[in-house]
Write a protein that binds this DNA or RNA. Structure first.
Lengths: 136, 136
DNA sequence: CTAATTGCAAATTGTTTGCATATTC
DNA sequence: GAATATGCAAACAATTTGCAATTAG
């Protein structure tokens, strides 16, 4: 989705197009792939947009997430935002915290009483580099 | 595993058997199934053990989790402990926060560069009751 | 002009840390 | 008696809330 498409999307849902929202969406559609915490995004966007508040970032990302325009999951401590469109699992290193995409080949779960909105598959472990450093 | 077996397990790993640990392990092995937050467990055990500190609970649960004696996952905000031994997925209602077990029939993921320690499958959505109340 | 959005300060929540005291082995 | 564990107070990190000022439509 292009920046314009996303903005159109927001407009259609009655949301206002603010410069903060434009910046965030621009960033997302430029990057396309990768994981970010709110903090990281804040650090990056603050440079170009010094008046930006992290509270606004929380608002915007929360809204985009609700609309299904970004995907979010938790590393157990904080929310990670993920802009890549294809579903996949995530590997999180419990030592260095690094997150890597993992192919999700097959996932079958039993029936759910209710409306299912999203599925998070998180694999925790120790990445190769940390294994080398610490041993196991 | 019985309380005695778990305690033996701890001893073998050089951990000391304290009354706090006994209480926690007793509780876990009595309940066997169900999800708890540290806060809940603290509320329950505090009655029988008024001097118990929640910090100690964090310590104990963290240790038991490391040893693989309890399973833990995140609801995105806090750590949920799960004492049932068979692997399964979890459904979390984003409205009321209730957590239910979901059968995990099949899960195949791609290769991982590193040592895989555990997999969390969390399904988020809205439970039947909340759907009835709010509509959708 | 009106409703939505921003951004600040402050509050909350979950969890961790430092350290002195107490307890197990 | 030595090493480990507890529990308190305080620190921390991520996120949310209340609210007044600003901005988009």
């Amino acid at each position: 989705m292009t920046v314009e498409e996303i903005l159109k999307n927001l407009k259609e849902r009655g949301m206002k197009i603010t410069s903060q929202r434009i910046e965030v969406i621009k960033f997302i559609s430029e990057v396309k792939k990768g994981h970010f915490e709110v903090k990281d995004l804040f650090a990056i966007l603050s440079r170009k947009f010094p008046s930006l508040s992290i509270v606004t970032l929380y608002n915007i990302l929360h809204a985009l997430s609700e609309l299904g325009l970004v995907y979010s999951f938790s590393d157990g401590q904080k929310t990670i935002y993920d802009f890549s469109p294809e579903p996949h699992a995530h590997f999180i290193c419990s030592v260095c915290g690094r997150i890597e995409d993992v192919e999700l080949k097959e996932l079958v779960i039993g029936p759910i009483k209710g409306k299912r909105e999203k599925v998070e598959v998180v694999v925790k472990g120790i990445c190769e580099e940390c294994l080398k450093k610490v041993g196991s």
